[in-house]
Design a protein around this nucleic acid. Structure first.
Lengths: 148, 148
DNA sequence: TATTGTTATACTCTATAACTATA
DNA sequence: TATAGTTATAGAGTATAACAATA
């Protein structure tokens, strides 16, 4: 395969795999009564509670307007708390509720199983190699965005 | 990194890279006055003209209803022809017009540059390895879908 | 002035489903 | 009955932009 075609094939396959994997993960979320965006919020808060909505928007690669609606729904569903920041009264800091933690604990095994099934064709070694290569692609994306 | 976490990290990074790469490729398409879906149709027809709309829907992983609207717009824009199949009067077979071929020729260099920039952190060897690993993930997706 | 969050609006992508013409 | 395509409708995800409150 010529050089250019190899890169194109890798990127096209990457996109197609991601599209199909996203549908699989969305189906997992739906079985737990959640949208994929809500699961991503839960995972993000699990990784560090107390973030602001703006922080969350940046991590999830969406605008603050979208985050606002999503967290409002999740607060109404009792999955998270929005507490006013005492040092900056404009900001809300986000925390998981007990119900949110339970939801996350309930979905994580299914998440893990789905990941294992998707990656069953790769050895542990290869999964590590895949991850490290993707991180390098992500660095290229950072560079691209910095230019723009 | 423990085994489960490695798989999860690989999949999460895969999704994030795909989301961001998709935005880059959509920006490329937009510079040429096309949507990403339209570029995908052009690329698919380039790979084999004469496919039906149903074929196209399966290859692009969308429903025939969506393909119908997309190809109608592209026909109106003069990018492709829909010719009745002489052997099956229900079906349309799709062909690129000269204008469609020109559009594709115009966008391909930009496409290639974008792919090269995204993959600049990987050697040619690694790009091949990435591609082959993604193909194996796609086979796992085939298996998953066959079950369902 | 700049930033956090809110709200309204609109566009894209996608799915479902009812419909027609044909096989 | 089943299939190719059409059309209408609805939902999710996203962006832009104007706005209020606060920094």
């Amino acid at each position: 395969m010529p050089d250019g075609a190899r890169g194109a094939a890798a990127m096209l396959t990457l996109m197609r795999v991601a599209t199909r994997s996203t549908r699989v993960m969305a189906a997992v979320a739906e079985r737990h009564g959640l949208t994929l965006a809500q699961v991503e919020v839960l995972l993000c808060l699990h990784g560090g509670e107390g973030v602001t909505q703006q922080d969350l928007a940046e991590r999830l690669l969406v605008t603050k307007g979208n985050v606002c609606v999503t967290v409002q729904r999740m607060e109404a569903a009792g999955l998270l708390d929005r507490r006013p920041d005492p040092l900056d009264q404009r900001a809300h800091r986000l925390f998981l509720t007990e119900a949110g933690r339970r939801q996350l604990a309930g979905i994580r095994p299914d998440h893990r199983v789905a990941h294992e099934r998707l990656l069953k064709g790769l050895s542990g070694e290869e999964q590590g190699a895949l991850y490290r290569m993707l991180v390098r692609v992500e660095q290229a994306l950072d560079d691209l965005e910095q230019e723009a």
